[in-house]
């Protein structure tokens, strides 16, 4: 059984102010239910606790075999206030893909 999320899914990060979006897609349709079951908002919030300070909402898009995570207070105040090197959070898709699956 694959252990890292990266083995089952690909991901793209986007930003709007201090909000981070993480779009997660199953490589294979048959793995989508497993993502829905395991990659819950709570697990994502816990996994990214060093980065995401606010709420994590999840939208299911079964037609696309996708989950959309919308993470508030995730970019250290947004591009303006952030002192982070990657102020837009462009690299954070790969932080999510580090998640270990059961």
């Amino acid at each position: 059984m694959p252990r890292k999320l990266a083995e089952l899914a690909h991901c793209r990060a986007g930003d709007k102010g201090d909000t981070l979006t993480l779009s997660l897609f199953a490589y294979r349709a048959e793995d989508y239910p497993r993502l829905v079951a395991q990659v819950t908002p709570d697990r994502v919030r816990a996994h990214l606790s060093g980065i995401v300070k606010g709420e994590v909402r999840r939208y299911e898009l079964p037609e696309l075999h996708a989950l959309q995570f919308v993470c508030e207070q995730a970019l250290a105040g947004g591009v303006t206030a952030s002192l982070a090197l990657d102020a837009h959070g462009k690299t954070l898709s790969y932080a999510l893909l580090e998640l270990e699956l059961d």
Partner: peptide, 24 residues
């Protein structure tokens, strides 16, 4: 698919000046 959801903070009601878009 990656670009479709890029920076979308609400796939059920994405507000633009022209329309409120539902991507579901």
């Amino acid at each position: 698919k990656e670009q479709l959801l890029y920076e979308v903070t609400d796939p059920t009601g994405y507000v633009t000046p022209d329309v409120t878009l539902d991507l579901r």
